[in-house]
């Protein structure tokens, strides 16, 4: 058979087109982020029935660090690496006011606050001080979910943002995309990692480890679909703020008593 050049171009084009549509078909056969579509296999837990929320009452936090410690133990987050699913920040506003009323704020979180804090600034120099516990906000419009190129990061029906460790390719785009520094790279798994609100616990009716460990009740967790839950009550009665609301991430960690310095 004599194939002319024009035929060749035609055949070539056909190959290209079918290759392109082939990938589209293959693509539609794969379901995206398999974990994202399957509810947790826990007898009786229905993820359509809950929508979780978290409240931090910064006025109650004493900076003891038990929550951060409990988290590392519960979730096997390495103690010897600088990675945290939750941490406590300390803010100290110093007395030195100059003519422009600019304040000097010293912020720190040594080892995530796990060991508590030491007074390295004399008390008489400090005007006001407070602690702010931080955790993944499980944003309802989460940039980390948005930027994940393979859909390994997803929001569950009950409002928890999770990473599918079987799927994540470890590109770390989500770590760049999270405005709150809530994500870290899990060197052992080679994937991104973050707080799960102890999904393995809450789907069994338990509290997240940090909430359980807090001796003052500064951290509260509950179901926003349940009108009687403490979290829902606080939402209904208190004045609450969000972290970086201007970014439109719609956090589901709600703060009471946040100062303007906190970002």
């Amino acid at each position: 058979m004599d194939i002319t050049r024009r035929d060749f171009t035609k055949i070539g084009c056909k190959i290209i087109i079918s290759a392109a549509s082939g990938t589209a078909i293959v693509q539609s056969m794969f379901t995206k982020g398999i974990a994202a579509e399957n509810p947790p296999e826990n007898g009786g837990y229905d993820w359509e029935k809950h929508f979780w929320g978290y409240v931090v009452d910064t006025r109650k936090c004493i900076g003891c660090g038990r929550c951060a410690n409990a988290c590392k133990m519960e979730n096997k987050v390495p103690f010897d690496e600088e990675v945290y699913r939750t941490w406590i920040e300390r803010y100290r506003v110093k007395k030195t006011i100059n003519e422009t009323f600019e304040e000097e704020v010293v912020i720190d979180s040594p080892d995530g606050g796990i060991e508590g804090f030491v007074d390295d600034i004399p008390a008489e120099e400090v005007k006001k001080a407070f602690y702010v516990p931080k955790i993944c906000n499980h944003c309802d419009n989460a940039p980390c979910v948005q930027v994940c190129p393979v859909g390994a990061t997803y929001e569950t029906k009950d409002g928890v943002v999770l990473v599918d460790y079987e799927y994540c390719i470890g590109c770390r785009y989500c770590i760049q995309g999270c405005p709150y520094g809530a994500r870290y790279f899990n060197t052992e798994k080679g994937t991104a990692d973050k707080c799960t609100w102890c999904y393995h616990r809450i789907t069994k009716g338990l509290l997240p480890a940090c909430v359980q460990a807090c001796p003052t009740g500064a951290r509260k967790f509950g179901d926003l679909k349940d009108n009687k839950s403490e979290v829902k009550k606080i939402m209904d009665e208190e004045r609450i703020t969000l972290l970086k609301p201007d970014l439109g991430t719609k956090p589901k960690v709600f703060y009471i008593g946040l100062d303007r310095e906190v970002k």
């Binding site: 990938t23 293959v26 693509q27 794969f30 379901t31 995206k32 982020g33 979910v145 948005q146 930027v147 994940c148 190129p149 393979v150 859909g151 799927y167 994540c168 390719i169 470890g170 590109c171 770390r172 785009y173 790279f185 899990n186 798994k189 080679g190 994937t191 991104a192």
Partner: peptide, 19 residues
């Protein structure tokens, strides 16, 4: 972190991601 899964970008692209 998991180069062997890199090809997933082709098979299961998550279209809201710029990557």
């Amino acid at each position: 972190g998991r180069p062997e899964r890199g090809i997933e970008i082709m098979f299961t692209p998550h279209l809201t991601s710029a990557m």
